[in-house]
Amino acid sequence: MSESSSKTTLEAGEIARFLSYLAILAASVVLFVSAGTIPSSRFETLGAGAFPRFVYGAICLVAVIAIADGLRKISRNSWAHFGAETFAWAKRSRLVFVCLAAFAVYIVALPILGFSIASFIFVLSLQIILMPRRPVSILVAIVVALTFSFGLNWLFAEVFTVFLPRGVM
């Protein structure tokens, strides 16, 4: 990576962090106000909303400092490259998004299909997506998927008497 492209990537990172500070500040302001509406008891000096207000107030303060610091670090030109850099990062990290999407589908399907079947499909399909394309890998993947689905379910049910979701099917 050349020096200029590395600098552009760094600045894109700074912009992303700057946006995260803005999001944190916005959420904290809303929750700070919301904490003020929590009713307090006359039996205590500090009500249920006092501690959260203190925490969200502190978050607002630190987020404002972070925003000021971020503005100082980001040059005007870097905003122009932000979209392209974000797209390039998303492309580089595509497997992360695939993993997270597969995980989301897995936890949604778990109560329907039951632990064993959902886990088998999840482990096997994610392994197939991630694995190097070799026939022997498929065999290993099937064994591992069986172990971490039906095997794990058996272990927890029979040994620990912890029953994992059975599904509705």
């Binding site: 993993c99 995980f103 897995y106 936890i107 778990l110 109560p111 632990f115 886990s119 999840f122 482990v123 994610l126 392994q127 991630l130 694995m131 190097p132 890998s137 290993v140 993947a141 591992v144 998927a145 172990t147 971490f148 689905s149 794990l152 927890f156 620990f160 912890v162 029953f163 994992l164 979701p165």
Partner: peptide, 22 residues
């Protein structure tokens, strides 16, 4: 590629077994 999906499944088991809540 083998360990990531397998440990993710263990994380699911650990989280579920805590309170038995989906």
């Amino acid at each position: 590629w083998l360990i990531v999906p397998a440990v993710m499944t263990c994380c699911v088991v650990g989280s579920f077994a805590l309170n038995n809540r989906v």
